[in-house]
Design a protein around this nucleic acid. Structure first.
Lengths: 196, 196, 196, 196
DNA sequence: AATGAATGAGAATTCATTCAT
DNA sequence: CATGAATGAATTCTCATTCAT
């Protein structure tokens, strides 16, 4: 029964990402994960060499999903401005859908000494590159200011969206995503648009 | 050889904040803290009921410092625009000076079930209020767009500055603070300024 | 090498009861227990939430054994007098066989603020009730004085036997149980028998 | 001011005996003692070499008091029977007055490995000897059974009274001492009196 | 005579990992 | 594939004791 395998892994992934998001990597125990997943403790070590390999797999998985989400969102955008709007929407939607994963990433991003450090670096490079691409298009089209440094602007805007989204989820959870987007979008566009 | 009370606590605080910033709360052991502080293990438990109470005290202390820094920075600013520039500078300077504390705050801000949850809430409210004040002045003076929601804009801009600063410290540490500020300031001002 | 579940718990129980009997609860370390039991330290915490829960389990176990021992002893006794003789014998035999447990109970019985307080209360109620039953039979049959208060007499006689037995074990260990019983029985019977 | 010294020691003694009675020797910390006594921690080590020396001093003190109480009580008793009645009264009164000390003694009496083991042995020998003296007088006068072993009977009766008294204090504290004595006395006298 | 900050060895508890089934 | 009892090193926390004041 091939379903069984996938099912077990899915339960493990969901439980792990939720808990890591809530309590952080070091603050989450394997016991808590297996309890929430409803599987036995040995099962984790049947599928993964260690706790840190579990988190690596988790990051790689989430990373793949984020990249896909960004790429498909930006695909049909006619210009840099439209692409940036689409990315704001995509990032907010992603964070809403994968809250736990997003919290995990924001909490562990600045750590120095982790085994899965590289997964996070790759994650960051990918999304920064997608944002930077949209920015460069907008600059080339004259919509965005020409003096922007695409790289740093990209990571700054990514962080701006991420903190706004998490702030909303944690401190004002009953607000609608649409409202958040409506308030955030002018700030993002204002930050990069050419004046006049 | 008993030390002066303040000295012992200072050493403990410095060591703890550095390590928590580097490795997170759960990733840091009390042994590591006391070794770096050069005090005995019992000393932590003489002054604090537990490891988590040490973090609370740490947060309260850093919070006080941040609020002071903001208030003194903003004091002489002639208007909303100048105040916002001053706050960008102050936040960057604070994060550079208290890197470890800043990482700690960013890592723990989104956690749900921590003992020091309240300290973090208070911290957030205070700095959001300072930013919101500057924004309201700028809106009243016509420099900033009139349709801004001061609260959410404030927290978004704070997060924008914080992620930019941490990104710089972690991924591009040899860059100068001045450069970061020069690249960041137009984005922040563009985000809130009235067009035209 | 995992052992059968029952075996591990048995070894833990035996080791713990011996040590608690010798040194008291607070005077016994978990390290000493696991060393004597020949298991790893984590095993205690796999089976019990804490050291104090181990004591509770121990008390509940010993309590069950004592109740069984009393009930089977008294079963065939033809009258109150015979039942009381049987109980004296049963209690002495129990204390000789479960010395450590008995010392533990006598040491902790008068404590106010323990986690296992309820286990001890139940223990006391059960044995007092068995003694009181025998006393009531003897009173109804006219062998025992009619003015006895069955409850308080029961607990007094239980304590009388217990202190005599422990005194013997601690201060005169080479004496035979038979001798102790021979010297004790007239005192017990004299205490309750109707004169004449 | 010579009062001060005595006062401090008194507070220390009271606090220590109460806590040792409630929680046992090993279960009581020096911190708890000094907190209840309202003195600083160093004070204990100014007056005593160690925690175990404090308990030794405590035992010696209580022991002296018990011996005095017994001796004065028995002094005017005309015969063995009257002396035994007086001792029952004295022991009950002592336990009521020095509850904590009594609990301490009963809880630690059966331990093997204590520093102050000898103090307890001496205590036991003294009170057993007083009871044995009364018994011997009663046997000589023909009031008590001639086949009693004075030593074991003495310790048994002491334990009988002690457990009855503690049982009363712990499990039925609102009862009056007089009632306890009235119910206990016939049992004690019945245990040793010559029949007929 | 008394204090209380500081100590560090030792005790309780946690937790990632292993392995026989 | 999956289990869960067992492990033991690492970790948090305790507490009797010291000592400069």
């Amino acid at each position: 029964m091939p379903r069984a395998h996938t099912d077990t892994l899915d339960r493990l992934f969901s439980a792990a990402v939720e808990l890591f998001g809530e309590r952080g990597y070091a603050g989450t125990t394997v016991d808590e994960i297996v309890e929430r997943a409803g599987v036995a403790k040995g099962t984790v070590y049947y599928h993964f060499r260690s706790k840190s390999e579990l988190v690596s797999a988790l990051l790689d998985d989430g990373l793949r999903r984020l990249a896909e989400s960004f790429r498909s969102e930006i695909a049909g955008a006619p210009g840099g401005d439209a692409a940036l709007r689409a990315l704001v929407h995509a990032e907010l939607a992603y964070i809403e859908r994968y809250q736990a994963f997003s919290k995990l990433v924001m909490s562990e991003m600045w750590r120095a000494d982790r085994d899965w450090r590289d997964s996070l670096r790759t994650l960051r490079e990918q999304y920064v590159e997608v944002f930077a691409g949209a920015l460069r298009r907008g600059m080339a089209e004259g919509d965005f200011r020409a003096d922007l440094d695409a790289q740093t602007t990209a990571s700054t805007i990514f962080g701006m969206i991420a903190t706004a989204a998490l702030d909303w989820l944690v401190f004002d959870p009953q607000a609608a995503l649409d409202d958040v987007e409506r308030r955030l979008l002018p700030l993002v566009l204002g930050a990069v648009r050419a004046p006049g």
